[in-house]
């Protein structure tokens, strides 16, 4: 059961990361990067590492995504 969850999560993360890089708009790329962070939190939880999962959840969803979104705002990119 654990092996199946690990395999499905890893394949999902690889597909989402590849889709995030080949997008044409910058806003889509940033949102798909947040999906990579979410998948990695699920994987850290399955690997029985609660401290690392908590840190990645707070930093990946809060500060790292905020940095890229503020770059989007200040660069004046439309769409």
């Amino acid at each position: 059961m654990i092996g199946l969850i690990i395999l499905v999560s890893f394949i999902g993360i690889v597909i989402i990361a590849f889709a995030s890089i080949i997008q044409k708009k910058l806003a889509d790329s940033i949102i798909l990067f947040m999906g990579v962070g979410l998948g990695s939190v699920i994987l850290f939880f399955v690997f029985k590492a609660p401290d690392v999962a908590l840190t990645e959840a707070v930093i990946g969803a809060g500060i790292s995504s905020l940095t890229f979104l503020m770059a989007l705002k200040h660069l004046g990119v439309k769409g």
Binding site: S20, I21, L26, F33, F44, V52, F68, L72
Partner: peptide, 21 residues
């Protein structure tokens, strides 16, 4: 330029997963 930073962040996430896995 910002997509290059996103690629660097994806590389860092892959190393964290490798280390703990």
């Amino acid at each position: 330029l910002i997509k290059i930073f996103i690629s660097i962040a994806i590389m860092e996430v892959s190393l964290f997963l490798l280390f703990i896995g």
